[in-house]
Design a protein around this nucleic acid. Structure first.
Length: 475
DNA sequence: TGAAATGTTGGGGCG
DNA sequence: ACGCCCCAACATTTC
């Protein structure tokens, strides 16, 4: 009978099924499952507000599924682990690997420190389909373009690990002395801004499973095209569940692939590929969250305008499609992907504000805030990243609304004060005749803002700024 | 995973 | 019937 205690450290893998490290741990002994809130090593990337709300609920559900055996700490992990090892005579610790630079550094230190104390660390891949160091070009360099990264690097390599079942009903052990209560992590804000948000969040392992089933039933068959329409149910909305590891990418990959072999399932899998690509970029460029991948952008003439930044953050730019997206973000902790591109392009190219302001705001507001995906995507939209959208590719938020929200359902939902406008002017109220504004109960500059920038002029300014950048590069 | 400017084509109205 | 213009529709180029 196994009665030795082994530690299983939950990190970005808050699930029981398809969890390789947890499976290994449960075969090795009585498992002490624990979670450590680490605000001590995360440097300037402490978890954002919205993510903490999600985490709170996720930990609660995880603890339920462990029959309340989850031990919880708020401390420097090395101290927690060492004390537990000596107190309960633990010789083996299990975890699934993380890939953010600060976590890689931390885990490396912990591993070395523990091994010096004759404690074995067993780490597994539970969060990526292919680990970054395994997907490189023939000459050993990391890929800089998505298509060859995915086609040759990923699809051409060994297939991802197949999902495994959750461990047999575990024999768990809880640290009675030092574990704190979930409430003691203080993950929820004091005021109640998150109440509305939390209602939108389908948190936890079984909810993630349910969302996958719903997506397969409703969205997948129209995913490739339908994913562009923010009012439509053709996307999985699993990003936060994936981020916290409530469902594994391997499970998504094989569930989708085993069901269909068509353009929709291929496209969904390639979106998982973009996630892998983001992790690759972050792994090989540790300063991805704050340094332009393309150095020539270091000279970009960003504006510094707190007023327009605030208007963007609050969804009061006077551009309905942008405001709808920013309000969806603030209210729900989520934003549809198409709209993320629109509001990102608008911040960087129309307001001419540094992409890092956008990255910071998203980091704080998104329940799916993920260091790799968030920073890689902001660099992409700004044009300074790997395989980036060219700088001159500037989204027109009016056209985007007309194309992808043609009946106005999305904009009307989040910008109700202009809901009475006919579709023709819904995306550009400043063009509506006075009579129509009046009939719709709108006073521009009062009940809804006038646009804070002229789309045409700001576009031209951005193009000129880009041209100056190209010139500098040649000098 | 753009948009606008510019170029080309072809149908229809009209003298 | 014919040339001419207009312009929508589409294609190409440019940023």
């Amino acid at each position: 009978m196994k009665d030795n205690i082994v530690i299983y450290w939950f990190r970005q893998d808050l699930r029981l099924s398809d969890n390789p490290a947890l499976c290994a741990a449960s075969k090795a002994g009585r498992v002490l499952p624990l979670y450590i809130l680490d605000d001590y090593n995360s440097e300037s990337y402490k978890m954002g507000q919205a993510s903490r709300v999600w985490l709170h609920k996720s930990l609660k559900l995880l603890d339920d599924s462990l029959d309340n055996y989850l031990s919880i700490y708020n401390a420097d992990p090395i101290a927690v682990l060492k004390r537990l090892c000596s107190e309960y005579n633990v010789t083996d610790i299990y975890w699934n690997r993380c890939y953010e630079p600060w976590r890689v550094k931390r885990d490396k230190n912990i591993k070395e420190n523990l091994q010096e104390n004759n404690i074995n660390v067993h780490s597994y891949n539970g969060s990526l389909l292919w680990e970054p160091w395994n997907v490189v070009k023939d000459n050993g360099d990391p890929y800089k373009v998505f298509t060859p990264f995915y086609r040759k690097g990923c699809l051409g390599a060994k297939p991802p690990r197949e999902p495994i079942l959750k461990p047999d009903a575990g024999v768990y052990f809880k640290d009675p002395k030092h574990s704190i209560g979930l409430e003691d992590l203080n993950l929820l804000p004091n005021n109640n801004w998150h109440q509305l948000m939390i209602d939108h969040c389908k948190v936890g392992e079984s909810a993630a499973q349910q969302k996958l089933d719903d997506f397969i039933e409703v969205g997948l068959s129209n995913y490739k095209d339908g994913r562009n329409f923010p009012a439509c149910p053709f996307v999985s909305r699993l990003s936060a569940n994936i981020h916290f590891g409530e469902i594994s990418p391997n499970q998504l990959w094989y569930t989708i692939k085993d069901l269909y072999d068509d353009a929709n399932s291929d496209h969904f899998c390639s979106e998982l590929g973009w996630r892998e690509f983001s992790y690759s970029q972050l792994y090989f460029n540790q300063d991805l969250p704050f340094k332009n991948l393309q150095q020539k952008f270091d000279n970009f003439p960003w504006k510094d305008d707190e007023v327009s930044l605030k208007a963007w953050q609050e969804g009061k730019t006077g551009i309905p499609m942008v405001d709808a997206g920013m309000r969806e973000l603030y209210q729900t902790g989520f934003m549809h992907n198409r709209v993320r591109m629109v509001v990102g392009s608008f911040l960087v190219k129309n307001l001419c504000l540094d992409w890092r302001y956008g990255e910071r705001w998203f980091w704080d507001c998104l329940v799916d805030a993920d260091l790799a995906s968030n920073s890689a995507s902001w660099q992409w939209v700004a044009g300074c990243g790997a395989d980036a959208s060219p700088y001159f590719r500037i989204f027109n938020p009016v056209t985007q609304g007309q194309k992808f929200d043609s009946d106005g359902e999305y904009v009307r939902k989040y910008v109700p004060e202009i809901a009475k406008l006919p579709n023709k002017f819904l995306f550009s109220p400043w063009e509506a005749p006075l009579l129509i504004l009046k009939e719709s109960g709108i006073v521009l500059g009062d009940t809804y803002p006038k646009p804070i920038v002229d789309l045409k002029k700001s576009r031209e300014y951005a193009l000129a700024a880009f041209a100056s950048l190209k010139k500098e590069q040649n000098d």
